[in-house]
């Protein structure tokens, strides 16, 4: 049953992603990419458990490196996207 539940989640998330992203206009494709870059930093959530758990040194080092790399993605991704989106302006009349 667990597998079926997982397939459900995979299917719905992928379909939802397609529907949402299809509506993003071409002019915003670069911020979309840097923004989704930031979102893919969600790996950070997975890395936290390895970095801070009761594990051997190898796991903690791997986890901490993963935390650092994912943090670059999350912080850098959101900030640069914000910087770019701030540049998109309407015509001033």
């Amino acid at each position: 049953m667990q597998e079926i539940y997982l397939i459900f989640v995979v299917l719905l998330a992928a379909l939802l992603g397609f529907e949402l992203i299809r509506k993003v206009p071409a002019t915003l494709h670069t911020p979309l990419m840097s923004g989704s870059n930031a979102i893919s930093g969600i790996t950070l959530v997975g890395a936290l458990a390895s970095s801070g758990g009761d594990y051997g040194w190898l796991t903690v080092i791997l986890g901490t490196l993963a935390v650092a790399l994912a943090s670059i993605n999350v912080v850098g991704g959101y900030m640069v996207t914000d910087r770019m989106l701030g540049m998109f302006k309407k015509k001033q009349k």
Binding site: G17, L20, I21, M33, S36, I39
Partner: peptide
């Protein structure tokens, strides 16, 4: 599950582009 859902949103986005 949050990794699965979020990762797939990004996966779909890249694929569309």
């Amino acid at each position: 599950t949050i990794l699965v859902v979020t990762g797939l949103l990004v996966g779909a986005s890249g694929l569309i582009l």
